Simulated assay, not measured.
Amino acid sequence: MNLKLPDSLARWRLLLGEAATPALGGLSGAARSADMALDWLYGRDSEVAARGERGAGLGPSQLSTPDWINTIHELFPKEVIERLEGDAVELYGIDEVVTNLEVLERIEPSEALLRAVLHTKHLMNPEVLAAARRLVAEVVRQIIEKMATDVRQAFAGARDRRRRSMLKVARNFDFKRTVQGNLHRWDPQRGKLFLETPVFMSRVRRHTERWDICLLIDQSGSMVESVIHSAVMASCLWNLPGMRTRLVAFDTEVVDLTSDVSDPVELLMKVQLGGGTDIAKAVGYAQSLVENPQRTVVVLVSDFCEGGSQNELVRRVKALVQSGVTMLGLAALDARADPCYDRDMAARLVREGAHVGAMTPGQLAAWLAEKVRG
């Protein structure tokens, strides 16, 4: 049953919310149910509530998320339902929406949806989980398309202007020598330079020995975006020559997920968000993996909110740095690189020789390439 179109006053009342009741009158029947469903979602918007446009004056609605899903499917047409479900995930982070199979089959894949799936996958039955996995795969594919180019370019090698290359790709194009070599083809009447022989520079690989990259990923709930991008980054690094990439997730326990690095979808579906945080234990595990300290980079992706011993964390980071390991702490690894983290702990790690910051995946790729090349 879809909601019949109410009269103009009732439509304005639905738009403006409970605050408009004195001027426009109350609602009843299906219109009242629709108002409750709209307020359940948009009533949590503080800016809208401040303007008095929506937000009930009698306290929050008692609808549960499943009740809300059922209500909007009863009252609204398809295009409105899709908009409401999309806003629930994208604007308000109501992750429980994605545990509904019909929603998952309709909703547009996005990083916001992926975050919601990772938060709620433990609530999903096998059929819903299968649909969620397909969505995760599509979003991961989109992220890889954006990230893989940055990683490949960062590790492609430095350009060598002294040598020419037969590999005619745009990033190797030598503009200066191309112009110099074709100046005799300048046509003054047309004002054009005609190129017969474009010149391309070669690239050299400066790293011949293997490097070990260990990504330690804090899987507390606040780090979900960084978890996603770390998984994809590890997958992009996995096939690079001269590199051995490990990925380790941790909360109060440490789980080595390196066997799944080549399949970021499977890796993400195994991540368990939430719980406490024992960063020192994770750093200790990284210490056990080090074979050649001078050619090892440990990347700790965390908000540095240590739930275990802070002194032990500092001691272990100091030991890694003193052994020759390059230690990078990232308070965020995502598209925005806008972190919220324990600045005091980060400062203590910096004093022990760690590099600490926030990066996009492309920036991390460039940083790693610089370290690997020396």
Rank of each mutant, 00 (worst) to 15 (best):
I94E: 02
D187A: 03
E74G: 15
L300K: 05
A37H: 07
H184L: 13
L3A: 08
R351L: 12
A347N: 13
T245R: 05
G324V: 08
L3P: 00
L129C: 03
P188T: 11
Y92G: 10
S202A: 14
A369G: 11
T208M: 03
V265R: 01
H73I: 00
L38S: 07
L14V: 04
P188E: 12
R336T: 12
A148H: 13
A346E: 07
R134W: 08
A347Q: 13
H229V: 00
R13G: 10
L364V: 09
A37C: 02
K146L: 09
A231H: 02
K146V: 03
R162E: 15
L84A: 07
L5Q: 15
L101Y: 01
L333M: 06
V290S: 08
M233E: 09
A156Y: 11
E90P: 03
V299T: 09
R51L: 15
R295F: 09
V372T: 09
E127G: 06
F194T: 11
V97T: 10
H184A: 14
A116G: 07
T326Y: 14
L330M: 00
V350Q: 15
E90V: 14
D260L: 15
R177P: 05
W367P: 09
A31I: 02
V169E: 13
G43K: 09
I107L: 01
L135W: 02
Q62D: 13
L135E: 05
V48K: 04
Q62V: 14
R246W: 03
A10L: 11
D95K: 10
R11N: 07
D35W: 10
A331T: 12
F304L: 08
T208I: 12
L16S: 05
L300W: 06
I279S: 07
V199E: 04
P109V: 03
K121G: 01
H119D: 10
C236R: 08
D87K: 02
R244V: 06
G329A: 03
L215I: 02
L104I: 02
P77L: 00
R315S: 15
Q189W: 05
V151E: 09
T277D: 00
A88W: 04
T277M: 02
A346T: 05
Y285C: 07
V179P: 08
R246G: 05
A170P: 12
K270F: 06
C340R: 15
A154F: 08
A354C: 11
E225W: 10
L333H: 06
M36R: 15
Q189V: 09
G29K: 07
R106V: 05
A50H: 10
D303V: 07
L15R: 10
E96L: 04
D39M: 07
G307K: 02
G181T: 06
V128K: 04
G276D: 07
V301I: 14
L268S: 06
A365N: 02
Y42M: 09
V140R: 04
V140Q: 03
T178Y: 08
K146A: 11
D218T: 06
E306L: 01
V140S: 07
R177Y: 08
H122R: 15
R210K: 12
V89F: 07
M147S: 11
F173K: 04
A369Q: 12
L24P: 03
D67L: 04
A131D: 06
R373T: 12
P22F: 06
